[in-house]
Design a protein around this nucleic acid. Structure first.
Lengths: 256, 256
DNA sequence: GAAATAGTGTCTTTAAGACAGTATGTG
DNA sequence: CACATACTGTCTTAAAGACACTATTTC
């Protein structure tokens, strides 16, 4: 484990953010120029998650260049100086997945020194949730089923049939699932993985797949209906070979 | 609206970390050199929170240099290329607060383009919790009481009697409190604001101050004792003018 | 009518709130 | 002994799990 010695290095001038007492004139200001510090690269990586059948899938793209050439990785990009982190994420989603207006949330920032072998890269990871129906036709196959080798909100890296992921992306994806599981308990977030209209059973399935365990159907129904997050559409699902269920829509929570 | 031009600046040589070509071929690598991208500065800022009396306090240091000279700010530092984010936080805590081994957790990363008027600075914010007893004698006065102008887990910037905080630090501190409130419900975290041994009433007070509302004493006791997170020491508090309470200690949660 | 799932009603269990009553320290 | 708080026990209430029963569609 190679750790650069903290004193021996840095021929660049000592990063003192400390306090040279000063007036706000330019001369002194120059002596305190933070742009002198060596700077890391900053990227955003997005765990774009969808639900296909009984499994969570993540958008993974094969790396076309080293390092980790050929391995699958989360879509991402370096952050430009004139765009916010959120804007960078929107750009990644648009450019690499053709997605717009999906649910996005910042996840965690990964800053281990050696996480990219080329150079120092700090990555701000995001989670995006998207309903399978919203994926473009040719996008579907780029989503890979994710194996979650742990229970509850434990956390830890996930696994993908196609092999090891690049960088620390297996860990990032694991943290994304962990966050998702945690939030399901106290936030209406499952909607994001469903089309606009859905049945209670659809929503139950989402929760069960995300949590990785069966849920009590009765109390799930009660909780959801009591939450005020659902509004009935008055219509029912069609073309099922059994009694059709009421269709619901996500209701923006109104003031209590 | 002065934004450092993304191209005009930083002709300083791109600090490409050593780590030469390795297993992959160098040709491709040259055509894909991320060190070419202009890079933002990256900092860590730490919301060091303690409990004094009936109020949460945060460590705030007056800025001695522009921008926001004279205003209070969270302690922070730029991240060095050879240290992880966590290591940078430990360094800040040691250098600016004389603290070691306190509870620390990453909070959120703030990356608005204009959050620092000088240049593009992305900051990774952390929360640190420390018991008042662990503060050095001369540190106490640097902690300022924090006003939380919202209820529940709503969030939003906080207020400090000493005036406006520098940068977006009021918002960062607000998010820190918000996180704290949220975690209190499902995690043993209040301990971090108390000395090693404490009574149930001490812990109740912590929860009440953090949450900003009174709690039911009976069910609090039951929940805490049932959680398995507390272990009785067998001794009692001393020098109180009423019946002394049992002292408890935080018990590392054992495997169920 | 058979099969399958939607939806309702009710009983049990569990955790939280309320509160009375007892215990044990200080002054 | 008065006072203050710690601690215990019990009743009530609310939410979750379990499960029986009815409803409504397709085949």
């Amino acid at each position: 484990m190679r750790v650069a010695s903290k004193s021996g290095r840095g021929p660049t001038k000592p990063p003192r953010r400390s306090e040279p007492p000063q007036h706000e004139d330019a001369a002194l200001r120059a002596s305190y120029d933070p742009s002198q510090y060596p700077r890391p690269s900053v990227a955003v990586d997005v765990a774009v998650i969808t639900l296909k059948g009984e499994r969570l899938h993540a958008l993974l793209v094969p790396r076309s260049a080293p390092p980790f050439r050929g391995r699958l990785a989360l879509p991402g990009s370096f952050v430009r100086l004139d765009e916010s982190l959120d804007a960078a994420v929107q750009r990644v989603l648009a450019e690499k997945a053709g997605l717009r207006g999906v649910f996005v949330e910042q996840l965690y920032t990964f800053g281990a020194v050696e996480r990219d072998p080329r150079m120092r890269v700090i990555t701000v990871a995001y989670v995006a949730l998207v309903a399978e129906e919203r994926l473009a036709e040719d996008e579907g196959h780029r989503f890979h089923p994710v194996e979650i080798p742990w229970e509850g909100e434990t956390g830890g890296p996930v696994e993908v049939a196609a092999g090891e992921l690049a960088f620390d992306h297996a860990g990032i994806l694991g943290k994304a699932i962990q966050r998702l599981r945690g939030k399901l308990g106290y936030t209406p977030i499952g909607f994001q993985l469903l089309p606009d209209e859905f049945t209670l059973r659809d929503l139950l399935r989402v929760h069960e797949v995300v949590l990785g365990r069966p849920l009590n159907k009765d109390s799930f129904r009660r909780r959801m209906l009591a939450s005020g997050d659902l509004s009935a559409t008055g219509t029912q699902e069609a073309s099922v070979d059994h009694r059709p269920a009421e269709l619901y829509r996500f209701a923006r929570r109104s003031a209590v």
